[in-house]
Simulated scan of single mutants.
Amino acid sequence: MTWNWRAALAVIFLLAAGTASASAEPSITVCEDNDMRGRCVTLRHGVNNLRDWGISNAISSFRINSGAWLLCNGVDFRGDCRRFTNSVRNLNGTPFQDAVSSLRPVRRDGSGSERSAIVIYERTNFRGRSWVFTDDIANLAALGLNDQGSSVRVLGGTWQICRHSGYRGCYTIREDIADMRAVGLNNQISSIREGYRGPDDWDGPGRPGGGRGAEITLYRDSGYRGPSRTIRYEESNLAAIGFNDAASSLRLSGGRWQLCSDSGFRGRCVTVDGDVGNLADWRMNDSISSVRRISR
C-alpha cells in the first residue's frame, strides 16, 4: 500500500480545524441581504430584542462562525424558534425572512435546556441594550462587557452572577432582578455561570475532577432558604455584595471557614467546618460582616 502523506496531512488539518471550531466561543454574523450582503453584524452573545441593535426584522442571511444558535421570530425567544448549526445564505421562503427578532447560542456542552438563559441589561428595569448568555463566562472582560449590567432577567434555570472573574463573590438567582443595586452588584458583574453545585457535587481538591475549590454559601433565612451569596476565597466586607449582617444559615462545599462580626475579619469570629442550618445556634445570626477560608 502506498502512503499518501499529502492526504494524511489534509486529514490532520481538517481534524484540527474541527476541534478548534468546536471549542471556539459562539459567534454568528447576521446580514440584511441575501448571500451575506448589505449591513452585517457579528455577535458573540445572544440578544432578546434585536430592535435594540437596529436589526430587528431585517435579517435575510446569516453565517454561523462557531457553535449552534437558536433563532426566533418573536422577542424574548417567543414565536417560532429553530436551532441552526449551519449558515443560511437565503432565508426567503422560511418563517425567518426579515422576521428574526431574537437569537442566542445553544449551550456548548449540551447540558441544560435550550430554554435556560440569562439576560443582562445595561439599565435598570430591563431597559437598554441587553446581552443573553447560555454558557458559563469566567471573565466578561473578554467580551468587552466587564462591570456592566443594572438589571437581570432569568429566562430559565438557576444562575450565579459574580462580582469578580473566575466565579468569585457570587450571588445565586432564580428570578428577575429589576435593579442590581438591591443586591450590591450594579455594574459589577464580572462572571456568570449556570446552576449551583452543592456539597455533593463539589469538584475541588480531594474530589474527582478537581479544580473548583471550596466555597461557602450564605443564606438570608435559616434552613438554607432565601436569597444567597456564594464566596470562594474570602470577602472582607459583605456590605460590598449587599449581604452585611444578613446571613441566617450557610452551606460549605469544603474547607474550614472563619466568620467575623466586623469587616476586615475583626470583632467576634467563629470557625465552622460544616453546614449550619441556623446561625442563631452560633450567636451569629444576622451578625456576619466578613468571611474567609482558613484551610481546605
Score class of each variant (00 low, 15 high):
Y224D: 08
I28E: 08
C170L: 10
S191R: 02
F133H: 11
H164M: 06
Y233M: 04
I192D: 02
I120T: 06
S253L: 11
T217Y: 01
F265K: 07
W257K: 02
C81K: 00
I294F: 01
A10W: 00
T29H: 07
R181Y: 00
I189H: 01
A10I: 13
C81T: 11
L9M: 06
G274A: 15
I118V: 14
F62H: 05
P26Q: 10
C260R: 04
R212L: 03
G149M: 09
C81G: 10
T124Q: 08
G206S: 05
D201Q: 15
T271D: 11
S151I: 05
A58Q: 14
R293Q: 07
S151V: 09
S61H: 02
R6C: 04
L15S: 12
F126Y: 15
W5Q: 10
D76N: 14
Y121E: 01
N86H: 06
I120C: 11
D176T: 11
S21V: 14
R82E: 13
G149Y: 01
G156H: 08
C162P: 12
G255H: 10
G223Q: 05
V119E: 10
R251M: 11
P208K: 13
G169L: 12
H45W: 02
M180D: 14
R51T: 08
A10R: 09
S150E: 15
T124N: 12
I137W: 01
R89V: 10
S21M: 07
G157V: 00
T85N: 11
D179S: 08
L238Q: 06
G18L: 13
F96Q: 01
A24I: 12
A178M: 01
R193M: 01
W159S: 13
V11W: 11
I294G: 11
L103G: 14
A214I: 02
E114I: 13
R6N: 13
T19F: 03
G226V: 11
F243P: 02
C72S: 07
A68S: 13
F77L: 11
R225P: 01
S61F: 00
F84T: 13
A142P: 00
S165L: 05
R104C: 04
N237S: 12
N90L: 08
I118Y: 11
A7C: 01
Q160T: 04
M1N: 06
N65H: 03
G67M: 04
M1R: 08
E234N: 05
M1P: 10
Y233W: 06
G112E: 03
R292I: 10
D52Y: 02
N4I: 04
D179P: 07
C162L: 09
T19A: 14
L50G: 05
I216V: 15
A22N: 06
V132Q: 02
D273N: 04
N57Q: 09
P95L: 14
R163W: 00
H164N: 15
A17G: 12
V119G: 05
H164S: 12
V276N: 14
L250D: 06
G128A: 07
S21H: 10
E25I: 14
F265A: 11
R207L: 09
A214N: 06
S61I: 03
